[in-house]
Amino acid sequence: MATIQFDSAEERRSASLLGMWLFLATEVLFFGPLFFGYLRGRLAVHEAFVSGSHHIHFWLGTANTALLLTSSLTMALAVERAKLGRGVRLMLSLTAALGTAFLCIKAYEYASELGEAASARGGEAMFYFLYFAMTGVHALHLAIGIGLVAWLWLTARRYGERYSMPVEVTGLYWHFVDIVWVFLYPMFYLLERYNA
């Protein structure tokens, strides 16, 4: 009923993939002001950013990056398996679990940094503002991603050789969220670590 506008399943799939890529283009520009604000702030008050960076947890951030990169692997495998029509649930479960683990560690980090952030002044306050804003918007995206993966898990029976578009589209979104973190990680965790 909802797909009368398409002549074939393939046309529907290619339209959905294009739609998701365009949405991701929108997302790139949604993050744009944050990245530009960071760049300008870091060049304006570099020292404050460095000292702010030394107050956040290097190892937790690094471990989280590894978790998220691994979740991208399991998501890619989920797409592959959805096309085969078997084993998709296992990969979706792993993906959601890794994403949830990331959020739990992130929540622990936030809790332990909040006091320090509240007492920060000047440029360091701006560093913390950007840190919470950027990782917060990222975490929100990840939470939405986990919700989508859970929905795929519930509807996993529908996907097979002929129809796996929702898994593919969600996969694109998941990988995009991963890529955002790949840039956030060095921007916040890795400033002049050799001086820490």
């Binding site: 993939l17 294009l18 890529w21 365009l22 991701l24 283009a25 929108t26 790139v28 520009l29 991208s72 692997l73 998501m75 890619a76 996969g171 694109l172 990988h175 995009f176 991963d178 890529i179 790949v182």
Partner: peptide
């Protein structure tokens, strides 16, 4: 991630263009 996990290397010109335009 884009080329392999997101299958960008198998996508047509239009999708690549969308990625580049952003």
């Amino acid at each position: 991630v884009a080329l392999f996990f997101m299958q960008l290397r198998h996508e047509g010109a239009l999708v690549r263009l969308a990625a580049v335009v952003a």
